[in-house]
Design a protein around this nucleic acid. Sequence first.
DNA 1: TATGAATGAGAGTTCATTCAT
DNA 2: TATGAATGAACTCTCATTCAT
Lengths: 216, 216, 216, 216
Amino acid sequence: MPSAPRWRRRSDARPQELLDAALETFVERGYAATNMDEIARRAGVSKGTLYLYYPGKAELLKAVVRQSLLGNLAEAQTQASAHSGTFGELLNYFLGEFTRRISRTNISGIPKLILAESGNFPEIAQFYFEEVIQRARTLITDILRQGIACGEFRPVDPDYAWRMIVAPLVLGVLWKHTFLPFEPDGLDFDRYLDCQLDMLAHGLVASETPAGRNTP
Amino acid sequence: MPSAPRWRRRSDARPQELLDAALETFVERGYAATNMDEIARRAGVSKGTLYLYYPGKAELLKAVVRQSLLGNLAEAQTQASAHSGTFGELLNYFLGEFTRRISRTNISGIPKLILAESGNFPEIAQFYFEEVIQRARTLITDILRQGIACGEFRPVDPDYAWRMIVAPLVLGVLWKHTFLPFEPDGLDFDRYLDCQLDMLAHGLVASETPAGRNTP
Amino acid sequence: MPSAPRWRRRSDARPQELLDAALETFVERGYAATNMDEIARRAGVSKGTLYLYYPGKAELLKAVVRQSLLGNLAEAQTQASAHSGTFGELLNYFLGEFTRRISRTNISGIPKLILAESGNFPEIAQFYFEEVIQRARTLITDILRQGIACGEFRPVDPDYAWRMIVAPLVLGVLWKHTFLPFEPDGLDFDRYLDCQLDMLAHGLVASETPAGRNTP
Amino acid sequence: MPSAPRWRRRSDARPQELLDAALETFVERGYAATNMDEIARRAGVSKGTLYLYYPGKAELLKAVVRQSLLGNLAEAQTQASAHSGTFGELLNYFLGEFTRRISRTNISGIPKLILAESGNFPEIAQFYFEEVIQRARTLITDILRQGIACGEFRPVDPDYAWRMIVAPLVLGVLWKHTFLPFEPDGLDFDRYLDCQLDMLAHGLVASETPAGRNTP
DNA sequence: TATGAATGAGAGTTCATTCAT
DNA sequence: TATGAATGAACTCTCATTCAT
């Protein structure tokens, strides 16, 4: 078992350190209000050094977005193809997984950042749209279609229903980064997830049939 | 014979024209990337004129937000108190009304703007939180609680369920202003609403009882 | 005895009202920090009206200076030619008169204004130099020369001595408008004058002759 | 073969160069009429460089004043405590020293600047009042009191007499920076000093005693 | 004569980017 | 590779001046 190396060439860790500092700052302040000095300071390097690794502020933002998303995407894809159980269980699994990430990491700031800057960085918005959203859409509509086909799900409109499934996640992200400071009671993501799963499965309307049912 | 006058006095219509131009530009570009010159140009006035009506860029943003919201708020409040029919019908009514506004007016850019700039303008975020979100929350949780009490709704968790109801609206707003340009098929808000109402009412899971129903 | 007229055509009093407001503001704030809006407001007219009477800010300053000085100058000239008594008495009279004006009116702000703006308004400085300073110089050096000739004064260097006589007046003006707010005890102009006259007459050094005297 | 570099690093000399350029410009134009571009141009740097060293125009002015005065103050204090000879000689020494500085260096522009801007920068005026004027007052009144006590000086009013002693210096400063350009014969500071010392010592009035006396 | 809305040049300041070291 | 002093364009905001009313 190798012990930790006694030293590392700085440059190996550098790009990642810079991206981390940039992510943090962009998420905290927004793109325009972030200045390169601050990123450099947080990364513990000089401003000039940033430009050795990234050609400019805009490119730095893109790099931040790209690398923040790509890891998560690959992972999700893998898990999807290796599932077992009902489609409802798979859906629950994804929603739970996602909710947990929102509540724990600050990568959740990225989507908000993209929304905010989509007007000024259409390429980033498009990149996000194609790489993240379209994949999520495919993933979920596939599940829906199969679930409907096998009678597990009601015959909803998959091309629009996937947005209803995703919407609470998006709201959660935004809430965490926008209104949480103003809520004295905070937000309980476990309860949030429970409520979402319950409503997603059974809807709001009390059915005439006496028997209640459980999670999808 | 004098040529066209260099400017013309428009004093009555001016403030609203300026707000319109500002709303448009802020929504399109975001706060930081918007410059006063551009707003002035769109409003057909000189830069200095803006400062005759609003003391600065930040105040202009606040004025835009304030006046965009206040009108809508008053209206919603009025309609709420004058409803008849089941709670499900009332909910449907609100969601429909809201969806129609998203799809037709460009006031829907305001919420996105607020989300984007909440970090830099906490006061605006707080204003929005208190004036808009808290009211919506009260409105919806009241409906939910009453609907549950009278057996119309399943016993969901109202303090969180209201967010599930609102989430698709928020997503719709963001979608319109962020990803619509990238979608070749556009977005059909009628279908969007139908899907939302259906899922909200009955959920995703097929009930064991053979008979399906349609209205929430 | 005529009673006050029931009305006056506004325009008769206007120019003087404007000059008064301008003097007050220029003295208080300095030329650059004074804006036309403020002058107009103090004069109770609109900004545009200022331009009906004076072609611009610089011209307004010149008009203020000119009219503030001309009156005083004429007066001084008259009194000088109609004096009687020793030259020492004449000198005392002028110094007293001037000191009284410094202490009572706020015209004393004009010299400070001129000093401050001499770099930006050489014409005003030159005007002041020729109309005020050179006259004062002539007046005083004449008195000195005659006083020396008749044995009343010691044989001082009149071309420079006149400045020593004037210096305390200048200092008094500046003091009043610059440092007075910082002095808890204020400034007693009577004592100031007494001290000046005493020192001007007899100097600082105790003479070997036992008898002291008091008037110059 | 590279052409001349766009800029050169001068970091050590820079701050002083900037202060020099600023002093020159402020004295020439006054605070408000001085713009940062001009200072930068005179210092041979770009406008942005100024802001690397001083946070703004106002702070730059304060820095100019502070550093111009502090050196001179310390020096004067030192000399005062190490004097020998009569009090009259000490007074003469100071007046001579001061006059020489007025005539040779352009630091003499600082007092004029302070007078001119005292309305807009009360802090600077107060700083000057406390650090410069109050010290000078103490210095001179102490000398006067001691001189009077030992019979060297006539019993003048020290709290006001010190202003009479200082007044010609102030006038000299103002003269140099305000009216000198208009005087064809210029100003001979040696003669100015001689005249001041002579009048300060013996006053204007010819004493009845036949014997003349010498310098204080 | 009087107004005050409108103008637009110019101010101080910021900051992404460059480059001599 | 790393630095950070230097740059200069772009920004917000001010205000003397103009002119339709």
